[in-house]
């Protein structure tokens, strides 16, 4: 169990993705992971390498609007699952719900940060001295001659 990791992926409310879409995309990637779709994203469990690979793939899809953190319980654990506890929010839901509302702000901040870093100030072209050989060539080419 030490080599495995459970992660919770939360999709920002302003993302174009929905949990079912992300779920279907990740299923198509054929990763050996245990996944569970939830109302705010996904819960994933698997070997650490596979989870790392998944993180990269999710980063390619929508890196500013999908957030993740490690989760303690495996997906569908009966000790905290609502189905086995007779409904009600599971422990930790309220905090995720609160941070879920802030994710659009954080996503926008990350986007603007990246946009600012990408701005490259164009350097003015360096002034070079034109070599005398080039001037002579130009004179010969255009037939300019010194007036005597």
């Amino acid at each position: 169990m030490k080599e495995t990791e459970a992660r919770i992926f939360v999709i920002s409310p302003n993302s174009d993705l929905t949990p079912p879409l992300l779920y279907q995309y990740l299923i198509s990637q054929k990763l050996t992971l245990k996944m569970k779709e939830t109302c705010f994203g996904l819960i994933v469990e698997g070997k650490k390498n596979a989870v790392k690979e998944l993180l990269q793939k999710i980063g390619e899809v929508d890196k500013h609007h999908i957030f993740s953190k490690v989760r303690a319980y495996p997906p569908g654990d009966i000790r905290i699952c609502r189905a086995s506890k007779g409904g009600g929010p599971r422990p930790g839901l309220h905090f995720i719900e609160f941070e879920h509302q802030l994710l659009p702000l954080i996503g926008a901040a990350l986007e603007s940060l990246e946009a600012k870093e990408k701005v490259i100030v164009a350097k003015p072209p360096e002034e070079k001295i034109v070599p005398i050989q080039m001037i002579r060539k130009l004179i010969k080419k255009h037939g300019w001659a010194r007036r005597s």
């Binding site: 802030l102 901040a109 603007s112």
Partner: peptide, 16 residues
């Protein structure tokens, strides 16, 4: 915790 986009930018910039 931020309440506006500007605050969020400041927060994220500080953390980064």
């Amino acid at each position: 915790y931020p309440s506006t986009v500007e605050n969020a930018e400041v927060m994220v910039r500080k953390i980064v």
